[in-house]
Simulated scan of single mutants.
Amino acid sequence: MDFQTAVFYFFSTVLVLSALRVITARNPVHAALFLVLTFFTAGGIWMLLRAEFLAIALVMVYVGAVMVLFLFVVMMLDINLDRIREGFWSYLPVGAVIGLLMVIEMAIVLGGKYFGLEGMPAPADPGEGYSNTKELGRLLYTEYVYPFELASIVLLVAMIAAVALTLRKRTNVKVVDPAAQVAVKRDDRVRIVSMRAEKD
């Protein structure tokens, strides 16, 4: 067994154990921390598969932004753990069925050759100088530039619509006018008063 295979098995073991702790931890903060470990380990496995862009995006977006915000919200809220645990057994059959389907799908994908299912051939090794980030950028800005720009416009419209829907104009709120602050003169704000000195 070479070093890369050993690292893969180590990361895979940590990934599976941390994912199990996400769904079995009783404390939501502990579950969120185990989810951070799961995302970080998945990023390490993607780095082994030479998917550097996906690994960095996973760590930066999910670990660095989404999970930090989630942890902040969970720690700010006063969560009643007893009330959360009440519905656990009622959702257990549905969760078991979904988990069984996921195990069957993964078994078909990973062990397809043992069941007589021929999958797609493995891609050839691109070599040492290959960069999937560069290739992804080349595809995005050449062949898929119009869908990429269309997706960015859709996201921009959605962001503007979200701001417009939640915008409320209030009349009783004091606002600051920067133009009026810049145009003010010293004589308008400061008054020098000459007072006589008083004797004790």
Rank of each mutant, 00 (worst) to 15 (best):
V73P: 01
D125I: 08
A107Y: 03
L101I: 15
M76Q: 09
Y130H: 09
L110I: 07
F88C: 06
V145H: 03
L71W: 01
L139C: 04
F72V: 05
M75A: 11
G116K: 12
G87I: 07
M102K: 08
R83T: 11
M76R: 12
G137C: 08
T133E: 06
L101G: 13
E135V: 12
V109G: 05
P93H: 03
L92H: 02
V157Y: 06
G87D: 13
S152I: 15
D125A: 13
G95L: 13
A124P: 00
V73K: 10
G111H: 11
G116D: 04
A124V: 08
P147H: 07
L101C: 04
F148M: 09
E143C: 10
Y91P: 02
A151C: 13
L92W: 01
P123F: 00
A158S: 15
S90G: 03
A107D: 06
M106G: 06
E86I: 14
Y146L: 07
P93Y: 01
S152T: 14
V103K: 05
S131V: 02
T142F: 09
W89L: 15
M75Q: 09
L155A: 12
D82V: 06
P123E: 00
G129D: 13
A124Q: 06
F70A: 12
F148H: 10
V73A: 11
E143K: 15
L101S: 14
L156R: 01
L156N: 04
I108L: 13
Y114M: 09
Y144T: 15
A122G: 08
M75L: 02
G137D: 09
L117V: 05
L117H: 07
F72C: 09
L156D: 05
V73C: 06
R83Y: 03
I153L: 05
V97H: 01
L140K: 09
I84N: 00
I104W: 02
E105I: 14
I104S: 12
F88I: 09
P121I: 05
T142G: 08
F148W: 15
F148L: 13
A122Q: 07
L150N: 15
L92Q: 04
D82R: 03
K113M: 08
I79W: 01
M159H: 05
K134G: 14
E86Y: 10
G129P: 01
K113E: 10
L150W: 02
A158C: 11
T133A: 14
A124D: 10
F72G: 08
M75C: 13
G112M: 02
G111K: 10
Y141K: 13
K113L: 13
F88P: 00
G129L: 11
I108F: 05
N132P: 07
V157F: 06
T133K: 05
G95K: 01
M76N: 06
P147C: 08
G119K: 00
Y141R: 15
W89F: 15
K113N: 12
M76L: 10
R83K: 06
R138K: 15
L139W: 02
L117A: 11
Y91D: 13
A124I: 08
D78T: 09
E143S: 14
A158P: 01
V109S: 09
A124W: 01
P126I: 11
G129S: 10
G129N: 11
L136S: 06
T133Q: 03
N80W: 00
A107I: 07
V94S: 12
S152Y: 11
I153M: 04
F70Q: 03
P121Y: 03
G116I: 03
G112R: 00
E118T: 12
Y91W: 05
T142M: 07
